[in-house]
Amino acid sequence: MVPEAEFQSYYGRPVLKPPVWKEPYGPAYLYLGGLSGVSSVMAVMAEFTGHDRLARTARVAAAIGAAAGAGLLVAELGRPARFLNMLRVFKPTSPMSMGSWILAAQGALSGVAASTELTGILPAVGDAAVLATGLTGPLTATYTAVLLADTAVPAWHEAYRELPFLFAGSALASAGAVGMLATPRAQAGPARVVAVMGAVVESVAGVVMERRLGLVGEPYRLGKAGGRMRAARVLTAGGGLLASIAGRSRTLTALSGLALTAGALCTRFGVLEAGRTSTADPKYTIVPQRQRQAV
């Protein structure tokens, strides 16, 4: 435990405004982005390695993830009608602007890839699109970490090193899980491995992050966010473990896939909540800044 910090504040009021992103939209969007991004990469690899069924699943998952994610993003806006204003500008200093472009590309490409796959029309175009998502996919899975980190929210900003890995791991696990669940077990092998690796990365990144953050890591441990993060850890670790031993067991695969999905969702909900908590208590704003000044 970090010892109780001595600090002054204005009637204990927060210095910062809480993030406006609401549950379930925000965290679900983060989850879907991760799912879509890694699914795309899986689709590419599956294509190369001839895992046809898996490729099909991955293409569809990538497309659905991106489309649903974009839907949530729009729903999250204060004025959804003005969504297109996002694409008025291309602004490198704004991860949301970059993210919009990434998501737009990912959405379009994965959409094309999935529809050619399902309809069988213009397969070459679909293959090209899948190849392209090999680029946009990983970005879609990880840019969201920058999206959160590039704020004044202490628990997010200070975590900008680990968050991308946490999200990457979580995305791997999510996509792996969907791949496992929606592909005949015989073809799902790579998905299981992806899932296991994701679980490992997610767990390690989470632990490292909380350790390094010190006081600002506290919101990830306490209260509602702490509960979610702990749940995420158990689910992810358990899911990962199950995935590694599931083999062709239907039950174990299902359990593992669900656990990993739930874990990934818990991580996203936990991270969002931790961010909120870290803005609600002025301690997380004031104490680190003071300490920074002291050195």
Binding site: P138, A168, V193
Partner: peptide
């Protein structure tokens, strides 16, 4: 932040590749 995210993106790609 972008650098760390880029590294994570690469890791994703790498991880999937390794998996397959």
């Amino acid at each position: 932040m972008w650098r760390w995210a880029g590294a994570a993106a690469l890791s994703v790609a790498g991880a999937v590749a390794v998996a397959f």
